[in-house]
Amino acid sequence: MLELVNLSNYSMDNNLIKNDAKELGKFLKQNNLDGIEMMLWEPWDSNLHPEKFIYGVHLRFWSDWLDFWLGNSQGLKLSFPNTDAIKSCFGGLTRNDWLALYKENISAAIKMNPKYLVFHVSQARKEELYHWKFHYKDNMVIEAIIELVNDLSDVIPEGVTLLFENLWWPGLTLLDRNIVEKLMAGIQHKNKGIMLDTGHLMNTNQNLVTQEDGVEYILQVLNNLGAESRYIKGIHLHYSLSGEYVKKIRQENITRDYSIGNIMEHVLKIDEHLPFTTQTVQKIVEKIQPQYLVHEFMQTSTLDWQTKVRTQQRALRKF
């Protein structure tokens, strides 16, 4: 099992390593980490983020895309004020425009020679992020994802594993084994699997109160997946206990400002990315035996980052 941390090349994350590859190497060594799962915001600088540290790359993510993919003009009007906004989001007005944008991101990722790529599987319109009354169901999202990914498969090398990440919005929530089976059966790329995000899975249950509740819930979901759990190759490890916030926000009937800043603030209140402190989290790792374990946090400083990593590592001390 390789033990990794998430990192992007956004300026705030570059500051964590003082814009210096030696600092990145020192951080990894000091914290007994094998490397990083990278996300690109800017073109890759191999002098800052050397290939030897990069094991995975998290691809770009569009949370509200299915109306565009299906050509649902009425649905698009709910999220995009005009055609310029659509072009800005998807690189144009056609499927091929968006596919070109996606392929550009994948090609940039492949240059780093990663072992795996991470692909989010979900769909939610802006207002649905708050009230959770979703227009599209899991099955329709999965059917479109299969179509989308198969259209992208020509730029994904056979030797690179494509890992699909669960979220709490419609798509791959991991709550339905038939959906997992359908996704894995439909994707043409042979080297494929799932990146289990433990915090995202906890976000599907607003009744969780403690970390121990979360661990038991995750184990229950894994048991319900049966043989389909074999597809889980990696874990984004962190916890989230935001149920009370979600219950409250779902009941509010107010006019909202759906700016990117407000949406991100809201999503991060749901998806807390906190380090496990309970040793019961070992049960998840023991059950899955993942190839990759990623300590995935939202860090505010190098010290905060190190503290969170070491906190979670103490909970996993057997490993």
Rank of each mutant, 00 (worst) to 15 (best):
P81I: 10
G91A: 13
D97W: 04
T83H: 09
N72P: 11
D97P: 07
K87P: 01
F90L: 02
C89I: 04
T94V: 01
T83C: 06
F90W: 06
W69Y: 14
G92Q: 05
T94D: 03
G91V: 09
K77F: 07
I86K: 00
K77W: 02
I86C: 00
G75H: 04
K77L: 02
Q74P: 06
D84K: 14
I86V: 15
L70P: 04
Q74S: 15
D97T: 07
L76P: 08
L76C: 10
D84C: 07
T94C: 05
L70M: 14
W69D: 01
G75F: 03
Q74G: 12
R95P: 07
G91T: 07
C89T: 14
F68E: 00
G71W: 12
Q74K: 13
T94M: 06
N96Q: 14
N96Y: 02
S73T: 15
A85C: 05
S73A: 15
F68S: 00
G71T: 11
F80L: 09
S73Q: 14
L93I: 13
L78N: 13
P81G: 05
A85P: 02
F90Q: 07
I86P: 00
G91P: 04
L78S: 13
K77M: 06
S88V: 04
G91W: 03
N72F: 08
G71F: 11
C89S: 13
I86Y: 00
T94G: 02
L93E: 14
K77N: 03
G75V: 03
K87F: 03
A85H: 13
G91Y: 00
S79N: 15
L78E: 15
F68H: 06
G71R: 06
L93C: 10
F68W: 05
N72S: 13
F90S: 07
S79H: 04
L78Q: 15
F90G: 01
L93D: 04
L78F: 12
G91F: 05
A85E: 14
G91D: 09
S73F: 11
G71L: 10
G91E: 10
K87D: 02
P81E: 07
R95I: 13
T83N: 15
G71V: 09
N82T: 01
G75M: 00
K77Q: 08
C89A: 11
S79E: 02
L70A: 09
S73G: 10
D97H: 09
F90K: 01
N72G: 12
L70Q: 15
L93Y: 07
T83Q: 15
I86D: 00
T94L: 04
N72W: 03
L93W: 10
A85T: 05
K87C: 06
C89L: 08
K87R: 14
C89E: 14
D84Y: 10
N82D: 15
G92T: 09
S79W: 06
K77P: 00
N82Y: 02
L93G: 12
G75W: 03
R95L: 11
D84A: 14
G91H: 03
K87H: 08
F80N: 04
